[in-house]
């Protein structure tokens, strides 16, 4: 392993510590914000925005997605598309039938 490689990793170590601190603070913020009297919609939005930000920090730095190979990005883009379909297709189908009588 070259000295420059070792130096690169030691630079990353600093970012890992910063990300850990950010995750800890954001966890406290998540709990604090949940004590506000938001409507359900607003509470869901705020909680998921913070969770998504925390998740991106983990994926970007701990899982090294900030500097990953193209094949991984394509794989994850495809996964994201199917994930969105998985979440919204059943929901859309259900909302489509809401209010209609359950006729056999």
């Amino acid at each position: 392993m070259s000295d420059s490689h070792t130096h690169d990793v030691s630079k990353h170590v600093r970012s890992y510590v910063l990300v850990f601190a950010a995750l800890a603070v954001l966890t406290i913020v998540t709990v604090w914000v949940a004590s506000f009297e938001f409507t359900v919609g607003a509470a869901v939005a705020v909680a998921l925005i913070i969770a998504t930000f925390k998740g991106s920090l983990v994926a970007s730095f701990f899982m090294h997605l900030v500097s990953e190979k193209k094949a991984i990005y394509w794989l994850l883009a495809l996964t994201a598309i199917f994930f969105v379909v998985l979440i919204f297709l059943p929901l859309g189908a259900m909302l489509d039938h809401q209010g209609t009588p359950n006729v056999p």
């Binding site: 966890t27 998540t30 709990v31 509470a43 909680a47 998921l48 969770a51 998740g55 983990v58």
Partner: peptide
């Protein structure tokens, strides 16, 4: 860890 980051607010806080 990432999965738990979403499970925590979804199950406990909302």
């Amino acid at each position: 860890d990432l999965v738990w980051i979403f499970l925590f607010p979804v199950l406990y806080l909302l």
